[in-house]
Design a protein around this nucleic acid. Structure first.
Length: 470
RNA sequence: GGUCCCUUCGUCUAUCGGUUAGGACACCAGAUUUUCAAUCUGGGAAGAGGGGUUCGACUCCCCUAGGGACUGCCA
């Protein structure tokens, strides 16, 4: 059992392509088969080295590793020519000497008359003077009967053969076209299941005919619906993120991406959050839906939040530092890393992306002393409150168990000793610690900042050395 | 124009002829509360329309409407 992902390197790895790759990967793993990667670079004009790299990078980030060395389609042109020759000999193809202009004219005429495009060379041997002329090779498709594709997702789909034109399989420059190269490569690579976007459903009919003409065993086809943008329209630039690399930068985790993408067009009962192992155990291509799905960033964020809470703190810290660096807000890397690492256990529960983590961190953890206090905080710091915070500061200076639970108990004890509720302490304490920004529960905020920073920030505010928003 | 595909809450989906049509995200309300979140509880929310088939259709068939893909010497 062999599946493959076969993108053309003409741009970044599209989110739709990523899901196609994921489905191929999942199904191969599910069946204990192999997942292969083939770069379809026969269009020399549009294929680029950068795009090839972008595809590799995207797949690596998503964790969808191919089980064999990737194959570059262009490196196989000799084999493709050989196959064209074989088909020619079998009488399943013919050389077409029509000029591009004449071809276009015939195509237009056929379209206008609502009939099949036919080249006069289909049933005509070339004269001696033509043999050296530039020409293409066309597939000689049947005119009668129908072609059936028994698709794993779409079911049985039929075409009347008269509606299927004789497609070019080899260009005048000797290179193979997509529909032919795909058949040859899938056959040679032993691909048993072709899982791809349903924009290829029509091609499946043409490819089926080629398999039959060559006498080769056909793979099973599975055409999965395309992914649409949040507005239901085709995915486009205006939706912002299209490349999987964009999702990495937006702060999503690859495991969350796999989880979310798997749920787009596929489901397993009421299961929403599941591991790779579960996805592999449950995934069946036959359970994939036939309607296109829209991207829902809220749900992606929710799934991502779940996986973030399970993620390793060190890893999240590194990702957050990277996000800060992209914003140019990282400061000294070592110090930033150390501060974030201490705060991470507290921060990770509150964020849905590492980008949010970075924002929260910048909002209070990473602020430099002395922290500027906002108007609201300054207002709340009347003499009585200052005196109380001063007493708290004295008390915390003598307090050594700097963990969330102990701090919480200590704060409550302090409030009790003062004979006031937490509402008399909370706003001002938070204010001097964060400058007024929202932050986690007080004990957590103290723990996240650490002892020295907490005492330092309190001292700064109470010394009265600063009072403006500088 | 032609060929082909699609259509359950706002969104992702479950249902594979008999259910009060289930879950999740989002939304609303309540609980909690020192801020903002998170969390917990509850709530509103769906079978595109019309014909059939059947004792019985979201489920099967047909038509209509609305989306989409393809229609290249691109993939």
């Amino acid at each position: 059992m062999v599946t493959r992902f076969a993108p053309s390197p003409t741009g970044y790895l599209h989110i739709g392509g990523a899901r196609t790759a994921l489905f191929n990967w999942l199904y191969a793993k599910h069946c204990g088969g192999a997942f292969l990667l083939r770069i379809e670079d026969t269009d020399r004009e549009r294929s680029t080295e950068a795009a090839v790299q972008a595809i590799f990078d995207g797949l690596n980030w998503l964790g969808l590793e191919a089980d064999q060395t990737p194959i570059f389609q262009f490196s196989r042109v000799e084999r493709h020519r050989e196959a064209v020759e074989e088909l020619l000999q079998r009488g399943g193809a013919y050389r077409d000497y029509m000029t591009p202009e004449a071809t276009q004219a015939e195509r237009d005429a056929a379209k206008a008359e609502n009939r099949r495009f036919l080249s006069p060379w289909r049933d005509q041997a070339p004269g001696h003077d033509q043999l050296t002329q530039s020409h293409v090779v066309r597939f000689k498709g049947p005119i009668e009967g129908e072609t059936l594709v028994d698709d794993l997702v779409q079911g049985e789909v039929r075409w009347k053969n008269k509606d299927l034109d004789d497609l070019v399989i080899q260009r005048s420059d000797g290179t193979p076209t997509y529909n032919f190269a795909v058949v040859v490569d899938d056959h040679d690579m032993g691909v048993t299941h072709v899982i791809r976007g349903d924009d290829h459903l029509n091609n499946a009919a043409r490819q089926t005919l080629i398999y039959e003409a060559l006498g080769w065993t056909k793979p099973r086809f599975a055409h999965i619906p395309l992914i649409h943008g949040p507005d239901g329209a085709k995915l486009s630039k205006r939706h912002g993120a299209q490349a999987v690399g964009d999702y990495a930068e937006m702060g999503y985790l690859p495991e969350a991406m796999r989880n979310y993408l798997a749920r787009l067009g596929w489901g397993h009962g009421d299961d929403e959050i599941f591991s790779d192992a579960q996805a592999i155990a449950w995934f069946d291509i036959a359970d994939v839906g036939r309607a296109p799905a829209r991207l829902d960033f809220d749900k992606l964020a929710h799934v991502n939040g779940h996986w973030m809470r399970l993620a390793d703190d060190g890893r999240l810290t590194e990702l957050t530092v990277q996000a800060l660096e992209r914003k140019g807000a990282a400061g000294d890397r070592n110090e930033t890393f150390a501060r974030l690492a201490r705060a991470m256990p507290v921060l990770k529960d509150r964020a849905k992306t590492t980008l949010e983590l970075a924002d929260q961190a910048a909002a209070f953890v990473l602020k430099q002393r002395p922290v500027a206090l906002d108007e609201k905080t300054q207002k709340v710091l009347d003499p009585e409150t200052r005196a109380r915070l001063q007493r708290l500061l004295e008390r915390l200076r003598l307090f050594n168990s700097w963990d969330v639970f102990a701090l919480e108990t200590e704060l409550k004890a302090f409030a009790e000793d003062e004979g006031v509720g937490m509402s008399k302490i909370g706003p001002s304490l938070r204010g001097v610690l964060t400058g007024g920004s929202p932050s986690p529960d007080l004990a957590k905020t103290l723990a996240a900042l650490g002892r020295d920073e907490t005492l330092g920030r309190m001292g700064d505010a109470l010394s009265g050395a600063l009072s403006s928003d500088a």
